[in-house]
Design a protein around this nucleic acid. Structure first.
Length: 273
DNA sequence: CGGTGGACCTGCTGGC
DNA sequence: TGCCAGCAGGTCCACC
């Protein structure tokens, strides 16, 4: 579900609720996420204050006093929602964190593909989940040259290359497909066949599209919500994703859907060569 | 090594 | 109306 723009939106919407607050109580209602939740480590956050909230690729990082960091990945259906403590817990509210002042942070995730991990600040860089991430497309290290190098020896289809978090960290299926529409490239194109000019177009379009999506608070297809349970609006700006059978907004021909591996790809046969 | 396909889960939709 | 198949924003692992 959540790709970089959605995760960024979650971070921004969490800050007003959480910054400066101290944890008073932690309850794990369902520990069976992708990796079993360590309840003891979570309870260690009681008494600590939330000092910063940052994003790394699709990960949300809550930074606490005494150098503790709570790392989240939202998987497909994970949500971090802030509510008043009197709000009745819902089905799939797996972790409930009470804060000074009566706010509760709740991790909600029907499919339980998410990840919740408490570590010390100095362990962050050695985490297997974070160590191998490629450059964040909104960061300074992201460049056309880096992307071009990644395409040279690769027989993979460009849609799949863009989904590889070691190449670019933060894209998912929606934005990978949208980037390829906006650059006029078919998702099935083998990476090595792309020209320098095409790769440069991808590298230039990627941060622009992501910033645009952030401006609209992300894409709420069905599940995704921010910390206030608010929907994003970028689904209204998608050109190909989930639009198979509908008219291309540029040329009016019909958008196609194909399977690449086990996942759908969407493209306009006229606009994308 | 790189690439593919399935597994992990629940919930929703569409066809019969 | 009910049932079943297929599909969903992600990642990881076994296998070729």
């Amino acid at each position: 579900m959540p790709e970089l723009p959605e995760v960024e939106t979650v971070c921004r919407s969490l800050r007003p609720h959480l910054l400066g607050r101290t944890v008073t109580h932690v309850r794990v209602r369902e520990p069976r996420l992708r990796v079993r939740v360590n309840e003891r480590a979570l309870k260690g956050l009681v008494g600590k204050r939330i000092e910063a909230i940052t994003r790394t690729a699709k990960y949300v990082l809550l930074h606490f006093s005494e150098n503790a960091v709570w790392v989240f990945h939202l998987g497909m259906t994970g949500k971090l929602i802030c509510v008043e403590k009197s709000t009745a817990p819902r089905k799939h509210d797996h972790i409930v964190v009470a804060l000074e002042g009566g706010t509760e942070l709740r991790y909600h995730d029907p499919r339980r593909f998410g990840l919740s991990l408490v570590v010390q600040q100095d362990q962050l860089n050695s985490l297997p989940q974070l160590r191998h991430l490629g450059p964040d497309p909104l960061g300074a290290q992201f460049s056309g040259a880096h992307l071009y190098a990644s395409t040279r020896a690769s027989a993979r289809r460009i849609r799949d290359l863009l989904l590889d978090q070691q190449v670019v960290a933060g894209l998912g299926n929606i934005y990978a497909n949208e980037i390829l529409f906006r650059t006029g490239i078919r998702p099935t194109t083998r990476a090595w066949r792309l020209t320098r000019r095409q790769v440069a177009a991808i590298a230039a379009t990627t941060p622009k599209l992501l910033r645009d999506a952030i401006r609209w608070c992300g894409t709420s297809f069905s599940d995704y919500r921010d910390a206030d349970d608010k929907r994003g609006e970028f689904q209204n700006h998608l050109r190909v994703y989930d639009r198979d059978g509908e008219k291309c907004r540029v040329c009016s021909n019909v958008i196609k859907r194909i399977a690449i591996g086990n996942r759908s790809a969407f493209y306009c046969p006229t606009c994308q060569k």
